[in-house]
């Protein structure tokens, strides 16, 4: 006899666990391992780019830090895992090994991909606004700020007219209601009690 009404449910859950989940567990472990192996294999390391001369290796690293990946646009060529970045790193590496200098390689890439590959845009007529715009903005706004402040000092806020003085005193004086003959609610009440 089944005394526990939940027993069939429990046995079903056990069945599911024993027959399906447990056999999958090793499979899952294998898949996970494979996945990790693949992802570590495809992750690039700078060690792949070998140089005999440490100075040249440093120059290479510095250069790919300065170049921007066009696919993940907020990453440098040095940091990006995009395939295009890998292609461009290899191109830069090949040119470095062939003895090309930094400027030649930068010119090569700029001629093909535009100034966009540079994190540090060059100073030229089309980038004047980019370089000088902020300073222009600061200069103009400082000019207007100073002018406004000087203007304020020369003509301070005009004095209150007698009528405005009257209004101000009424607002500030708690017993001001007495004078103009109107009674506030409190006043009213006390009058009736008396």
């Amino acid at each position: 006899m089944n005394t526990n009404p939940a027993a069939p449910l429990v046995s079903v859950i056990c069945e599911i666990f024993n027959r399906i989940l447990i056999p999958i567990a090793p499979l899952r472990a294998i898949l996970l391992t494979a996945l990790l192996a693949v992802s570590t294999a495809s992750a690039y390391t700078l060690e792949a780019f070998a140089f005999e001369d440490p100075a040249q290796a440093a120059a290479f690293r510095e250069l790919i830090e300065e170049l921007r990946c066009l696919v993940c646009q907020n990453e440098s060529l040095a940091g990006s895992q995009a395939e295009l970045a890998q292609d461009l790193r290899e191109e830069v590496y090949r040119r470095f090994r062939a003895g090309e200098g930094r400027d030649e390689i930068v010119d090569f890439l700029v001629a093909r991909y535009g100034d966009f590959v540079l994190y540090d845009p060059p100073l030229k007529p089309s980038t004047y606004l980019l370089w000088f715009g902020p300073f222009l903005l600061i200069t103009v706004s400082t000019f207007f700020l100073i002018r406004t402040l000087l203007h304020k000092r020369q003509s301070p806020d005009s004095a209150l007219s007698p009528r405005e003085h009257e209004q101000l005193r009424e607002l500030l004086d708690p017993h001001g209601s007495d004078r103009d003959g109107r009674n506030g609610p409190d006043q009213d009440k006390s009058d009736r009690e008396r």
Binding site: L84, D87, E91, G114
Partner: peptide
Amino acid sequence: PDNQVGIHWGVYG
């Protein structure tokens, strides 16, 4: 397949 010409044409996708 190896992006040899693509780079020269400035292809990035």
